[in-house]
Design a binder for these strands. Structure first.
Lengths: 225, 225
DNA sequence: TATGCAGATATTGGATCCAATTTACAATAT
DNA sequence: ATATTGTAAATTGGATCCAATATCTGCATA
């Protein structure tokens, strides 16, 4: 087949397809950050291998990936459990997010495309109108990610995503609190309008407040029970 | 043996000892960040397994850990190579470090013990008097780490360490530039004195400048060749 | 009843084996 | 000569097996 021939077949680069370990990793990651696997719950290699119709080898690989991400902790010969996270560390991660996400959104606003602005508003509206509490977490995250994506800071984004993974469970809980979602809605609107108006510093400031507000609200809640 | 008996044997908690995978990981990590394994160099599982007198299983685990850390990149059925890093990303990581390390040192100065201050000065002097270029990188990193350790921000510190791992090779190169080490020495002294005087904001500001200065000097160098 | 011990069972860590894929290279055709 | 094909070697991904450790259970004993 000459290079000038029409391409009749969708080429698929096999070297980029997901290995079994990747699939298991993604499934476990999702289950952990959504809270389906609770703090301290053990991950049995055999059991997971059976669930995925595979051997323990890819499962072990997936677990070491999760451990590097801080989503599970393992002890030699005892196995892996879903990582629990002390309130102190939750607080620290929120502070970290405020610092980094503030910087990221500032960079993003300064180079944000109209397309991204439109998408962000769509996300905002989807978040507002959704009645399924299970989806709030996803929509919330998607809204923020849309605002960040033009930042041109892929390294920062990777770090932020990992930080979000670590506390995703708690964020979801926070959204379900009495006025959690309503407040998120209002604050999102403020951030969105700042972005649409091209006010980068304002967007950064509102984002920081948004994150730190969620932090105190969540910590109050954690303390109370 | 009653509890009141003298302890004749140092107890060792086996569940905390390092697995073979951990050992291989540490060795490879060190080789990569010190530049002994160059950009793009392939990591052959068999070869590494032979070197450590083990099978490929722990080697594969080590490689997946390295991949999660961003130190190697792998392609299915093709294997792992030492991750190369584009100048853009080097620049971004320096910016990230300036942001986070500035915050960290501010928190650290506000709660820094006299002991840590003494250790920091010792590190500074060791860095100044060392004549072995190979050790400069270690001493430099040790100096900064000593200043950060009282921050009470373990999550931030983990992130900073990972960022440092990614660019350690380049930092070492930067120290070897014509006036790289002399300038580092002067800037370190300024930071150290700010810490000793308890001036947190000044220390943060100097740290940010120190990092951003290293960034421009390094990028100039990368561009020139 | 509570405690300690012994063996059985379960679970993880590592070694070896097989399958899937890539890479190197020689043979062949144009 | 260059490009193409076929084949063998090298390499990785995954399965299975064995060893090391932990956990559980029943039983004896104070």
């Amino acid at each position: 087949m000459r290079e000038t021939d029409a391409v009749k077949l969708q080429p698929v680069d096999i070297s980029k397809t997901a290995s079994v370990a990747d699939i298991v990793f993604e499934a476990l990651r999702k289950a952990i950050i959504e809270g389906d696997l609770k703090d301290g719950e053990p991950l049995r290699q055999d059991e997971i291998a059976r669930l995925f119709n595979t051997s323990r080898i890819p499962v072990r690989e997936a677990i070491t990936m999760l451990e590097q991400q801080g989503l599970v902790t393992t002890q030699r010969y005892k196995g892996a459990v879903v990582a629990s996270i002390a309130p102190d560390e939750v607080a620290e991660i929120f502070d970290f997010r405020a610092l980094v996400e503030g910087t990221v959104i500032k960079a993003a606003v300064e180079r944000m495309s109209d397309e991204s602005r439109r998408m962000a508003r769509q996300c905002h509206e989807a978040f507002s109108s959704s009645t399924d509490p299970m989806s709030w977490g996803d929509l919330n995250r998607q809204f923020h990610y849309t605002l960040y994506q033009d930042s041109g800071l892929p390294y920062h984004l990777g770090i932020v995503n990992n930080a979000l993974d670590r506390i995703d469970r708690y964020l979801r809980a926070q959204l379900m609190l009495s006025n959690g979602r309503a407040r998120a809605h209002d604050e999102h609107l403020g951030i969105l309008e700042a972005c649409e108006a091209g006010k980068a510093d304002l967007a950064a400031d509102l984002t920081r407040r948004h994150i730190l507000g969620a932090k105190t609200s969540l910590l109050d809640h954690l303390k109370r029970k």
